[in-house]
Structures are given as C-alpha cells and as structure tokens.
Computed example of a mutant assay.
Amino acid sequence: MLQILGKTSSINVRKVLWTCAELALPFEQEDWGSGFRATSVPEFLALNPNAMVPVIRDGDFVLWESNSIIRYLAGRYHGESLYPADPCERARCDQWIDWQASELNRAWSYAFLALVRRSPAHQDRSQIDLSCANWARHMAMIEGQLAKTGAFIAGSAFSLADIPIALSINRWLETPLQHGDLLAVEAYMARLATREAYWAYCRNGTP
C-alpha cells in the first residue's frame, strides 16, 4: 500500500492526501515533521536528503516534492480526469501548480511566519506589510483567473491544479490580515465545498 510520510497539518502533505482522496487511492500515513518524528534522522534522510515532508513510498519507488508527488499519483493511478492527457490542457494545469510553488509561496512566506507561526525572526513590520501586499496582489491574480473561467483555476473542470491553489486560498483565509472582497474566490470555494476531500484536507481549520 502507498505510504505517505508527513504530518497532516502540513499544507504540502495535505496536497498529497487530497489527491489520494480524489483518486480513491488507499494509503497509510505516518506523522513526520515538527512535533512528531524528526526528519533529520538517517532513516528519513535516506528517503529525502532535504529533510522535508512529504515523502511517499509506493512499493520500491520513493518520491519527494509535493507537486511531483501529486502529478505522479495522477499519472500512475488513472487520474486523467484530474491531470489531462491533452498537452495544452495539461500545460495549463501545470502552469498554476508551478506558479503556486514558486510565486505565490514566496509572496506569503514572511507574513505567514509572522502572523500565524509567530516566528520571532519574522517580526519586522515593514517586511510583514510588504509580504501582505505581495500576497494580496497574487490573490488578485487568482480572483481574475477565476472570474475569467467562471469555474476552476485551469478551466471549466476541477483539476489537479485546484488542490494547491485551494490550499493556498485556505491559508489566506485563515491568516489574520485584511482580506478584502474576492467574490470569484468566494464562489470558487463554495463550488469546492461539494467535494468531501475539500473539508477533510483543505477547509479543516489548518492554515
């Protein structure tokens, strides 16, 4: 059976758990990371030298990096409805997955560590304000895209890209800052609320 190593409070682990739920894929999950088993031990480093979660073991196959994992799972376990075979549709899906990991994550990092994690190293007010402004700018891009599609982030149908994007929106909503009116985002989250996995792994109170 597929094994998922990583604590369920991790946004990146929840990407993998949500994907498994959409694929109706059974798995075993082990808690690793801060507050649980340390990822710095040799046993874990042999699986991922970055000492970060999630990691999966699928038989003899080991993989790390959450976005690589969800793509692998969709490809390996007949997830064509989530990750289209058509090159153009797949590229559009990949575009938003990669954007979330590179641009959006970078925008929120400082503000999230300051306002949610209460990191003593991230309490510079000017840096918090800058991060919040950058985060809001990226959320406006999501708002614009959702207003354009009228449905999901990559088009008219739910796709693999909606998993990291929705988790990012959840993080935005759960962080104590000024959110403003994002009507397309609000409607999008309401559409996602019809999916069981959304409540289990996205809107579960964990930012």
Rank of each mutant, 00 (worst) to 15 (best):
I165Q: 07
L5M: 12
D86Y: 01
A111Y: 04
L177Y: 06
S109E: 12
W172R: 00
F61L: 09
E174G: 00
A107C: 14
R171M: 12
S66I: 10
Q178R: 11
G6E: 10
E89S: 13
A184L: 08
C202T: 15
S159P: 10
I11L: 15
A161C: 10
W99M: 06
P164G: 07
N105R: 13
G150M: 09
E43A: 15
F36E: 08
P87S: 09
R90G: 04
D124G: 04
T175R: 02
M141A: 14
I69N: 06
F27T: 01
C88D: 11
T19N: 00
E30H: 15
S9R: 11
Y77D: 09
Y110M: 08
M1R: 12
T175W: 05
S119F: 05
F158E: 00
Q123T: 07
L115Q: 03
S10I: 13
G59V: 11
I163P: 07
A151K: 10
K148Q: 14
F44L: 08
T8I: 14
S156Q: 15
R125V: 13
A184W: 08
D58V: 02
A151L: 07
W32F: 15
L2V: 12
W32I: 05
I4C: 04
R125W: 00
W108R: 13
Y83S: 05
R76C: 03
A184Q: 09
F44C: 07
Q29T: 09
D162S: 01
A91P: 07
L2E: 07
A140L: 11
A154L: 08
Y77W: 03
K148M: 08
A51T: 05
S159L: 08
R71Q: 14
P84F: 02
A161T: 08
G35D: 11
A107I: 02
T19R: 04
R90D: 02
E30D: 11
R37F: 05
K7A: 15
K7L: 13
A184I: 09
A46M: 03
N67G: 11
G35N: 08
D162T: 02
